[in-house]
Design a binder for these strands. Sequence first.
DNA 1: ACGTATAGTTGAAAATGTCAACGATTGATT
DNA 2: AATCAATCGTTGACATTTTCAACTATACGT
Lengths: 156, 156
Amino acid sequence: MTIEAQDEQQAATKDRLVAAPISQDVGFLLAKLHAGGSVVNNRALAEFDLKERSYSVLILANSGLEPTQRELADFLSLDPSQIVSLVDELEKRKLVARAPGRQDRRAKTVTATSKGSQLLAQAAIAARHAESEVLATLDDREAAQLKALLRKALWG
Amino acid sequence: MTIEAQDEQQAATKDRLVAAPISQDVGFLLAKLHAGGSVVNNRALAEFDLKERSYSVLILANSGLEPTQRELADFLSLDPSQIVSLVDELEKRKLVARAPGRQDRRAKTVTATSKGSQLLAQAAIAARHAESEVLATLDDREAAQLKALLRKALWG
DNA sequence: ACGTATAGTTGAAAATGTCAACGATTGATT
DNA sequence: AATCAATCGTTGACATTTTCAACTATACGT
């Protein structure tokens, strides 16, 4: 078989299963796009020794909203203990700092240091490129529409 | 604090972090909606002793496309060894059957048994309900639009 | 003051993901 | 026909992630 014919065959068989009814299932579509996107995002963030998770925490720490760890857990759909280790690592790298909550001393708010902000500024650029790679087949209007629909599904 | 005031407080603080810029990040939105959706889907499928994963395999096995395990792995973004254990379990339950590939005897095609088809028919109803629960804040047009955009992002 | 509830932390157990090896089979090349 | 590299499913080892139950310290209503 020639190389070209092999390529054609691959292109033909690669997405053969798209015809299956599961391709109409939102859960599946979400899982698949998320899986592919994670690979791209993590590859882009590796340069900064960040992963999707730590990147998310860093953004929220840098938002000015002074989230507590509990809020981070709820918002990121993670177990509180996972937040502990994420914040532990970021704190070790001096990218974020823990501070006791003002009204509630049980809580600890997580805030980005200036070093964290600077790193985030760089990482955000890489993340933006990764995103446009993932959404390459969508034009700007469609990408915006997709985001809006996802937000509406999440928060109404 | 009264119960009502507590509820208000919760409603106010629950989604406080939506204001953070990460809410514009497609990767994050996908992760969050997928996380929430998985819980709902798995709860709906538990009644049939299925999870999202085995449900996906069962649908593809029932599609008439006679996918090989390799194709399942590629399409579901899973490691081939994960497909082995998923198919092992479904086969043990007589919901699918393995058959040697017609042109390639290395490959094994996975096909739903009639018992598998019947179970799937039931499970699909539950999955549909779960999906509409996840997309409750979207009207029909928006849900269709979301699916279309996800498909386009995946396959152009 | 008391009891109950919650935030963060720790550590263990279970589930999942990743990867390298292997036998069987394929297809191309000699 | 013999051979060689590549591919499919499988197995088992290892790493990562998830889930959960304790525990301390703090908060809050009674």
